[in-house]
Nucleic acid binder design. Structure first.
Ligand code: DCP
Length: 1227
DNA sequence: CGCGGGCAGCAG
DNA sequence: CATCGCTGCTGCCCGCG
């Protein structure tokens, strides 16, 4: 890079840190600092003593803290309620509104009534502020308050009864998914302004004027710019503008800053004013907002010829309506449905403006004419087609798939797809339709819309992947609905004092009620022109897309739920694909449950969103036995009629004396029917004989297959099954499954559906987050970042449920050896092996930091190659109620060496949970508590640090300063030489050696978990105590005898090879370290832990600060500590974790943390620990660069964080250079 | 022999 | 382009103390 002055933009993302970049960076720092009024002369800084360089000041550019909840929080209760009501979660009294609306829409009959059943939009606005608070919390992950909040959270979302916790993430609140970050950013921006003002007020400088040049401007930066994104951000904010990290529809940008644009971006950005960065700088320079057109980017490289129409279009439009940007903004924050359509359309449709379209301004016509007349239409049209296809799927109430010839039309007009597929010459005719139909005919519902840039696939690398994915995953919805329903019904039962159960009659009547082809039926509601005989299915569309549900017309052709669309289309060429409509599924489900609950049955048990069991014994037993069947049939008929009237969808009802039979009857009843099988013994037997084993609950394909092999039959009916002895069945299938088969074959089933009988049995015992789609990673750093996001998601789910857990299980899907790298299903699993590993966390927790670190550590322990990873699942078990747990870190490290013969350190994390015991504020957590450090880096004390480390690392800390008594390990090190080393170097070497030595082990060795039976838990599992009373033991730490062994420095390890480490060689060792540290350090630490536990090593449990304590023993300087760590391996692990967590959660590394780290680095240099510095530098650099190389290109916010880290890298380099150059050292 | 981790299977 | 393969639970097997 020769032109060091002109490539500032590139500087923002250095992949290597050459001298040129360094100089540039210095220049830039100087620029910025002078603008900020900070005295900082960096000229020649690299020739100075590092302590004189005040580079870290640079990191104060933006204050990242978010101090207070946003205004608008006061509204939250209301807003949650309102949102709640429109979600239709099935609470009595809440649903009927939807019902009326629905019948109105039914009568409508034009196919576009979907709009009528959409929720009103205004509450959404408020929900944004609610989410903003969520993001505030998220921005300070170490100060999570959610789970500390002991206020009454109505986690079951009783819309009418209770206030809803405001920051409870609302399931199904799709639109607000993308709003939280905006608001966090806005808050940051506000903070920055305040801070900036403060500086001038407090300082001696003359207050500088910041005219609001960019008032009404909303700026977005694309790609590399000079100055960089951070600086532009700062300037825009400073001069009264707004800044966006996304091109989302919320607060849509008015200006895009870019130095150059790819052709695709050209098209994408057509409706924006795309300007060069000089627009910003020169506007500020001249004190007047410069006319943007002078800085337009569009014609820089591509010229007028090619897409000149775009520029002109933009100009004419924007000049005709200078407030267009503002309009966009306002509309976006008020997401009425039509706005949603418009904004999404705007984003995807080139060269049109829909505000204009709506108001019918003449410019629009002109614009379109211009566009059509352009000679280069072809190129554009191609892109246009692509975009439009997508658009049509999202915006139109129609479901289309590329391969599907049956484009479902809701009226006679051609769909956008039709238009898009026509020759350009036809477009002229279609123009009106093209522009207007999506606006006048909004969709039934707007699915979560990805904001991905067109060149980037939405895989797990994308920062918003999880939200996007879960918003669109049917199985996620299904699971969440079921869990919510369970919880709701348990709560219901607990709230009502248990009514005396009627004496258990010999005969029960169980109804099993289930919607027929639920998704398909509900989705088809919006398409009344469809006939019942039209085969339809619900699917995302695409060859390998799953058919979630198909109607009975389609089943005639052999189409089944779960089948790929490709196959369904082969079986049934005329099948019509419908879109998912999750909010309506929820609503319709609510109607069903209302009806069922209104029956007054003894119990209602939710099986699924579309399916429930009802114990109707009390409703029909008063009749004489003979008439019971009739009464039951009448009841079933009533239910079916009511449900159909109120929802327009059919349920079927199976009724019998137990759950098993009811289920089988239901199957017989479908579709749209009922089947009652009541105590007629012969009838039951006859009925059962015809049933297939596969229909039994809990008997799936595998068992069926095994049975058919065993019986040598094709199809195995219960009649045949009955001929098999119980013994044979239990021998083949195990005691439980065998018995079940035996009894089910005879219609025997004692399954209870009475939640009230034993609510405990139905409360959840685990919480998990699974992602087995979109998992594609190149670098381990990307995995780390993803793990951090997964942990954050897990944390949010746990916090919402007021749960914390003792155990974390990571389950990975690994591409099978023989499976192709590209899966048949796009971003799918393919053929995989699953490997899972459980970790005991030591304390019940839901802290995202711990969860994240643990996941990363477990990932390394499992040792799956990054590129073969196809799925990740995290499960938290051994749950406890987190309410009542004191949130602030009060973990105490407790040492207990009573078990020294086992050779294991007994490490107890005992939370001082005694509610009467005040938090020990004297123990040095000043940084955390007072300064709100974002990434928890306490400056002094053990416990805080330790808590945020993964237990693996936490544990290894104990060993880091102690002996590694592992005689059988061949480290290739001459330990006598080691012994001869100065103690200081020995200390420094310990951690490194450990890693280095361990590295010789096969990385794929499976390690056993350490036994942690000695872990003492203060908090009992909630499940053991009926009322959630927290049992508190007296704090054990103070009472504990200090049995910790005196630290002994003599290495007991003597049985080693003799060649090896010499004082000169340690350099070599170290030089070798970075390459593996950066890739394997976490794994090594984890392995160290495994190794220790496995080899009965006699070790000493040590506080990190013991390193310092032993400084009297060390004659030289004690090594500086970073977070009380002095082992490079651990510090490296911490840094790696820090980096991936901040990038993963899109939070800035906290200024103070960075300061502390740089301070540490400086100290290290002062002590001339060059190799360590080098290692740390390379570690950080490699981590940051890897993220930038692989993952970072898709998301501005992520880039900004990475940029911040690149700043850090450069600062480290600065410090290193300043140290090395005068000494003639090079590295 | 009982416990617990790992894993398979199942349902919607 | 695609596509959105979740999630909670039960039961079996096997190794360990
Ligand atoms: N593999 C599956 C199975 C089910 N579902 C969803 C769509 C279904 O509509 C809903 C209910 O599942 P059912 O098993 O009850 O199937 P249907 O309701 O579609 O059909 P039916 O109950 O009439 O057999 O769950 C799904 O997405 N994927």
């Amino acid at each position: 890079m020769s032109q060091s002055n002109s490539s500032f933009g590139r500087m923002s993302f250095p992949t290597s840190l050459g001298d040129d970049e360094l100089i540039e960076y210095l220049n830039r720092l100087e620029q910025e600092e002078s603008q900020l009024g900070i005295q900082l002369d960096l000229h020649g800084a690299n020739h100075r003593d590092p302590s004189a360089v005040k580079v870290e000041d640079n990191l104060h550019r933006l204050p990242r803290k978010i101090h207070n909840p946003l205004p608008g929080e006061a509204n939250e209760g209301v807003s949650r309620d309102t949102i709640e009501s429109l979600q239709g979660t099935g609470v009595p009294g809440n649903i009927s509104q939807g019902t009326h609306t629905l019948s109105a829409t039914d009568a409508d009959g034009d196919g576009f009534q979907g709009i009528d059943i959409l929720p009103p939009s205004s509450p959404m606005e408020v929900s944004i502020s609610a989410l903003a608070r969520e993001s505030v919390i998220r921005a300070s992950p170490l100060h999570q308050v959610a789970s500390n909040d002991s206020s009454q959270l109505n986690r079951l979302r009783h819309a009418n009864a209770n206030p809803i916790k405001p920051n409870e993430p609302k399931f199904g609140d799709y639109r607000s998914y993308f709003t939280d970050k905006h608001l966090a950013q806005q808050q940051q921006d506000k903070d920055y302004l305040e801070w900036e003002q403060q500086r001038y007020l407090g300082g001696s400088e003359v207050p500088k004027e910041f005219p609001p040049l960019f008032k009404d401007c909303v700026v977005y930066v694309n790609g590399y710019t000079k100055p960089g994104i951070a600086e532009i951000h700062r300037l825009v904010i400073l001069y009264g503008g707004k800044f966006r990290h996304y091109l989302g529809s919320k607060g849509a940008p008015t200006h895009i800053i870019a130095s150059r644009l790819t052709p695709r971006k050209m098209i994408e950005f057509q409706r924006y004013k795309v300007v060069r960065p000089e627009w910003i700088t020169e506007s500020i320079e001249k004190g007047v907002l410069q006319f943007w057109k002078q800085y337009t980017v569009i014609n820089i490289e591509y010229g007028q010829q090619q897409i000149g129409f775009t520029r002109q279009a933009n100009e004419s439009l924007n000049e005709a309506n200078p407030f267009i940007g503002e309009e966009v903004h306002e509309m976006s924050t008020n997401p009425r449905l039509s706005d949603i359509c418009q904004s999404s359309l705007k984003d995807r449709t080139p060269a049109v403006n829909h505000e204009e379209s709506l108001s019918g301004k003449p410019q629009e016509v002109q614009l379109v004419d211009e566009w059509r007349g352009n000679s280069r239409t072809e190129l554009t049209l191609k892109s246009f087609n692509v975009e439009t296809l997508h658009l049509s799927k999202e915006v139109l109430p129609e479901k289309e798939s590329d391969t599907n010839k049956n484009i479902l039309k809701t009226d006679g007009s051609p769909s956008l797809k039709d238009v898009a597929e026509m020759e350009p010459s036809h477009l002229q005719i279609m123009d009106d339709e093209l522009e207007l139909s999506p606006l006048t005919r909004p969709p039934a519902f707007q699915l979560q819309e990805d904001r991905i840039t067109s060149e980037h696939v939405m895989d797990a690398k994308h920062p918003e992947f999880l939200k996007h994915y879960f918003a669109n995953s049917r199985l996620h919805h299904l699971s969440t609905w079921r869990a919510d329903l369970r919880a709701k019904f348990i709560e219901k039962v607990l709230n009502f004092s248990r009514s005396i159960p009627p004496a258990k009659t010999a005969s029960k009547v169980i109804l099993h009620i289930d919607f027929d082809c639920f998704f398909a039926a509900v989705s088809a509601l919006g398409q009344p022109q469809l006939l019942r005989s039209d085969p339809v299915c619900v699917t995302h569309g695409g060859q390998t897309s799953d058919v979630a549900s198909c109607n009975y017309a389609a089943r005639e052709f052999g189409v089944k739920n779960g089948m790929w669309l490709k196959r369904a289309q082969v079986l049934c060429p005329n099948i019509v694909a419908l879109d998912y409509d999750f909010p309506n599924y929820e609503r319709v489900s609510g109607v069903l449950y209302d009806i069922l609950l209104s029956l007054g049955a003894r119990s209602v048990f939710p099986v699924s969103v579309d399916e429930a069991l009802v114990d109707a014994s009390n409703l029909v037993t008063s009749d004489p036995v003979v008439l019971m069947a009739d009464a039951t049939a009448k009841l079933a008929q009533t239910i079916r009629d009511r449900v159909f009237t109120e929802t327009g969808c059919h349920v079927s009802v199976g009724a019998a004396s137990n759950v098993l039979l009811a289920k089988l009857c239901l199957r017989r009843a479908k579709p749209a029917g009922q089947f009652v099988l009541l105590p007629d013994a012969d009838g039951v037997e006859e009925f059962l004989s015809e049933v297939d084993v596969g229909q039994l609950p809990g008997i799936g394909s595998k068992i069926t297959q095994k049975l058919t092999v065993m019986l040598r039959t094709d199809k195995c009916s219960l009649g045949e099954l009955r001929r098999v002895t119980r013994e044979r069945l239990t021998a083949t299938f195990g005691i439980k499954t065998g018995t079940k088969l035996f009894e089910y074959a005879r219609g025997i089933d004692a399954t209870s559906i009475d939640i009230a009988e034993n609510p405990e049995e139905y409360t959840r015992k685990s919480v998990s987050v699974d992602v087995n789609y979109g998992i594609r990673f190149d670098a381990i750093q990307e995995v780390d970042v993803f793990m951090a996001r997964l942990a954050q998601e897990m944390h949010e789910r746990l916090a919402k449920l007021h749960l914390a857990g003792h155990h974390l299980t990571l389950r990975l899907a690994q591409r099978a050896k023989d499976a192709p790298v590209t899966t048949p299903k796009f971003l799918g699993l393919g053929k995989c092996e699953f490997i899972s590993k459980l970790s005991k966390l030591g304390v019940p927790t839901n802290e995202p930091g711990i969860l994240s670190a643990e996941c990363k550590a477990l990932y390394r322990m499992i040792g799956i190659s990054t590129v073969d990873l196809r799925g990740v699942a995290v499960t938290i078990t051994r749950l406890v109620d987190s309410r009542g747990m004191i949130k602030d870190n009060q973990s105490k490290l407790v040492f207990d060496k009573t078990n020294t013969t086992m050779g294991k350190p007994d490490l107890h994390f005992a939370k001082n949970r005694a509610l009467v015991v005040p938090p020990d504020r004297s123990s040095g957590k000043a940084l955390r508590t007072d300064d709100q450090t974002q990434y928890q880096i306490p400056s002094e004390i053990d416990s805080s640090v330790l808590e945020e480390l993964p237990s693996s690392i936490r544990r290894s800390i104990l060993a880091a300063t102690s002996n590694t008594n592992a005689p059988s390990i061949d480290y290739g090190i001459d330990w006598s030489v080691y012994e001869a080393l100065p103690p200081e170097i020995k200390l420094e070497l310990d951690g490194e050696l450990e890693c280095h030595g361990l590295r010789r082990l096969s990385p794929h060795t499976q390690y056993d978990s350490p036994s942690e039976s000695d872990y003492r838990q203060v908090l009992p599992n909630i499940s053991e105590a009926q009322p959630p009373v927290i049992h508190v033991e007296p704090p054990v730490n103070s009472a504990l005898p200090r049995k910790r062994k005196r630290i002994t420095r003599d290495f007991p390890v003597q049985k080693v090879r003799t060649e090896g480490l010499t004082p000169e060689m340690d350099e070599d060792v170290f030089n070798e370290l970075p390459s593996f540290i950066r890739e394997e350090i976490l794994r090594d630490v984890a392995e160290a832990r495994k190794l220790r536990s496995r080899r009965d090593v006699v070790m000493e449990a040590n506080l990190p600060k013991l390193v310092v304590q032993s400084s009297d023993y060390i004659s030289l300087q004690a090594p500086p500590t970073f977070q009380n760590l002095s082992c490079t391996a651990e510090i490296g692990a911490l840094l790696t974790s820090w980096i991936s967590d901040t990038v993963g959660q899109l939070i800035f590394p906290h200024v103070k943390d960075m300061e502390i780290f740089l301070q540490y680095f400086r100290k290290l240099l002062q002590q001339r620990k060059l190799t360590r510095c080098l290692n740390l530098y390379l570690l950080v650099k490699e981590n940051v660069n890897a993220l930038q190389r692989f993952g970072g290109s898709c998301e501005q916010a992520e880039q900004t964080i990475i940029l911040e880290w690149q700043g850090c890298v450069l600062q480290l380099k600065l410090l290193l250079d300043a140290y090395c150059r005068p000494r003639g050292l090079s590295y």
